[in-house]
Design a protein around this nucleic acid. Sequence first.
DNA 1: ACAGATCTAGACCACATGGTCTATAAATAA
DNA 2: TTATTTATAGACCATGTGGTCTAGATCTGT
Lengths: 237, 237
Amino acid sequence: MRREFKKKSKVLLIDDNYEHLVGIRELLNLEGTFDVVGIATNVTVGLNLIKKYQPDIVLLDMNMPDRDGLQGIIEIGKLDSDTKVLALSGYDDADLIFRAMKIGAKGYVLKTMASAQLIYAIEEVLNGKIYLPLALSSRFFEYFQQSFRDENAKQELNEENLLSYLTQREEEVLELLTQGITYKGVASKLFISETTVKTHVNNIFQKLQVNDRTQAVLYAINNGFLTKKGMSTVASR
Amino acid sequence: MRREFKKKSKVLLIDDNYEHLVGIRELLNLEGTFDVVGIATNVTVGLNLIKKYQPDIVLLDMNMPDRDGLQGIIEIGKLDSDTKVLALSGYDDADLIFRAMKIGAKGYVLKTMASAQLIYAIEEVLNGKIYLPLALSSRFFEYFQQSFRDENAKQELNEENLLSYLTQREEEVLELLTQGITYKGVASKLFISETTVKTHVNNIFQKLQVNDRTQAVLYAINNGFLTKKGMSTVASR
DNA sequence: ACAGATCTAGACCACATGGTCTATAAATAA
DNA sequence: TTATTTATAGACCATGTGGTCTAGATCTGT
């Protein structure tokens, strides 16, 4: 068929289950549009094959013995090849999906899924898209939203958050403190005397129930003070 | 038909475009399984209707005049009703999708989508699932991954990250500093003399190119020091 | 065995920081 | 109007902090 004229996409498979490895290879070979350039049963070997064959895509099992799959994604990412990673797993574990996507997997499919869906996923990823089956993206989003709910819960103690007792001026002072600025610096930035700054700072300490600037800054950061100011901090897990 | 026996789901629509509002109402009424309990052309009115009718789901347009849609999602969330929000928008703006999902929208659909898909989305959300059309979830993930790439880029200066020059002991000291502990405190925790701590701290300052503990702590936080230690900081935008 | 890094620790000094009190002007609330 | 809050600012003092130098004890790697 026509397809033969189109250049086949190079695929590499990494999975510690050899049976499965061969199964997928057969499936992809039957499809005809893929060229399985190599298979490996562990990440270390897989990485070498990637360097050698520069595959377009790697199907990477998440449950590996030596290094785990997540580490594998990171290391493949560090290679400066354009190789894309499609994560493969037996379980729809939300945390695992979240982490995998976070560190750059272009997709995540379950081993139990129909082969047609696997083929489709591979093609989407090869086309530069990110593919997550509906069931998994649903899982992902639950986890994603949950993590933010937790955060908000932490900060909406916030209504009983000591930060809310600060006056306008005190907030301004605190904001400067969170930039590591001294009394003198704050004073000149706010056009007030140094002793006034000290007064404010002492009031801040009392309100936040801390006894030095470092603790005040930490309190501010951990209680969403910067977030409100439009700053950003980024989630990790 | 049988469906009549099943309790209809209460739906509320909020969209500043009245034409569109009526259009969707008609569509849902034709479907027969929905009961459109109210429509509103702005968030303020919508909130009151929600309090009154306790709908199962709200279709909320993201591009509203008074309050914007994002704020609407948050405020609906604050009501302690179980009302779910399905975001509706004319554009597949990645940032908007990301924010909407982050603050708890159960789904996001485009106005240009086929009505069958809208119906499907509503049903999925009503069934407690989160629904993002493939095209949008793809958009979302690109944005999601990009934001982490930015983070990593920031921290993988990391290879030229000043934190990497710290010795083991210095890291231990810094970790305690990031908890707002004084020289004396650090000394007793590490079973070393206070002056030794001072020496370490001074070395840390030099290596991080800062001149006080607050700046050192801020540097540590902004450069992934805590992340490595298993602590967490959380993303916002 | 020797050079270099690391951890330890002391001495000294200047200055920043934190604690406490007092006090005035202005704005706000009762 | 009076009381309270807020922003301002000074004085005073104890202590914490940061800068610089020196130096011994270990531990590395060559």
